[in-house]
Amino acid sequence: KWTIEEKELFEQGLAKFGRRWTKISKLIGSRTVLQVKSYARQY
C-alpha cells in the first residue's frame, strides 16, 4: 500500500519527469521502478 507521501512524490515526479519511471523511483526512494510502473497503470 502506497503512503500519502509516496503518492505525492509520484505526482511530483510525473509532473517533473513525465513517464521516466527510473527517475520517479529514485525521487520516491522507497519504491522500485517496477512498483512505480505498476502504480502508474492504476493512477
Rank of each mutant, 00 (worst) to 15 (best):
35 Q>M: 10
18 G>C: 04
40 A>Q: 05
10 F>W: 01
10 F>V: 02
15 A>L: 10
13 G>P: 07
38 S>W: 07
11 E>T: 12
19 R>Y: 11
11 E>M: 06
41 R>I: 08
6 E>F: 15
21 W>M: 10
8 E>R: 12
16 K>I: 04
38 S>L: 07
4 I>L: 11
38 S>E: 15
13 G>V: 03
6 E>V: 12
12 Q>M: 08
24 I>E: 02
5 E>R: 10
11 E>W: 04
35 Q>G: 05
39 Y>S: 03
18 G>D: 01
1 K>W: 08
29 G>P: 11
18 G>A: 06
38 S>A: 13
24 I>G: 01
2 W>V: 02
9 L>I: 11
35 Q>R: 10
22 T>I: 05
37 K>W: 09
38 S>G: 09
35 Q>E: 13
3 T>Q: 01
5 E>G: 01
13 G>A: 09
11 E>P: 06
18 G>M: 08
34 L>D: 15
36 V>A: 02
15 A>V: 11
41 R>D: 15
19 R>S: 14
2 W>G: 08
32 T>F: 04
2 W>P: 06
4 I>K: 09
43 Y>P: 09
17 F>E: 05
28 I>C: 00
6 E>W: 15
15 A>W: 07
42 Q>H: 10
19 R>W: 10
17 F>S: 02
14 L>Q: 07
27 L>E: 08
3 T>S: 08
33 V>C: 09
27 L>W: 11
19 R>H: 14
34 L>Q: 15
18 G>V: 07
17 F>D: 01
27 L>Y: 08
43 Y>T: 10
14 L>E: 00
30 S>Y: 02
12 Q>P: 04
28 I>H: 01
8 E>D: 12
20 R>G: 06
30 S>C: 05
4 I>D: 13
37 K>I: 14
5 E>V: 07
10 F>H: 04
4 I>N: 11
14 L>T: 02
13 G>D: 06
38 S>Y: 08
14 L>G: 01
5 E>H: 07
33 V>A: 14
35 Q>F: 07
40 A>G: 04
8 E>L: 08
10 F>C: 02
16 K>G: 02
25 S>R: 04
21 W>S: 01
37 K>R: 13
19 R>K: 11
34 L>R: 12
12 Q>N: 08
40 A>L: 12
34 L>M: 14
28 I>R: 00
20 R>C: 15
6 E>Q: 10
12 Q>G: 05
11 E>N: 10
16 K>C: 05
22 T>N: 10
43 Y>I: 12
28 I>M: 10
13 G>W: 13
29 G>V: 11
26 K>T: 11
3 T>D: 06
10 F>Q: 05
43 Y>Q: 15
6 E>G: 15
13 G>H: 04
27 L>C: 06
27 L>M: 12
1 K>L: 09
16 K>F: 05
25 S>M: 15
27 L>N: 01
14 L>S: 06
23 K>S: 09
20 R>M: 14
30 S>I: 05
3 T>C: 07
12 Q>I: 07
32 T>G: 03
34 L>P: 15
27 L>P: 00
27 L>I: 06
31 R>Q: 03
4 I>Y: 07
28 I>S: 00
37 K>N: 03
31 R>S: 02
1 K>I: 12
40 A>R: 00
31 R>N: 01
5 E>M: 08
39 Y>T: 02
10 F>K: 07
13 G>Q: 06
16 K>D: 05
41 R>N: 14
19 R>Q: 14
37 K>Q: 12
25 S>V: 14
38 S>K: 13
19 R>F: 11
13 G>C: 04
22 T>C: 08
43 Y>S: 13
42 Q>V: 08
21 W>V: 09
37 K>C: 06
3 T>A: 03
3 T>P: 00
34 L>I: 10
34 L>E: 15
42 Q>Y: 06
11 E>A: 08
17 F>W: 12
17 F>T: 03
36 V>M: 06
31 R>E: 00
26 K>F: 01
19 R>I: 04
23 K>N: 08
12 Q>S: 09
28 I>T: 00
33 V>E: 11
8 E>M: 14
2 W>M: 04
24 I>Y: 00
22 T>Q: 14
15 A>D: 06
23 K>R: 09
42 Q>W: 09
19 R>T: 14
29 G>D: 01
17 F>C: 03
30 S>H: 05
32 T>E: 00
32 T>D: 11
36 V>R: 00
5 E>D: 09
41 R>H: 13
5 E>N: 11
24 I>V: 08
25 S>Q: 08
16 K>P: 01
19 R>P: 15
27 L>A: 09
39 Y>L: 12
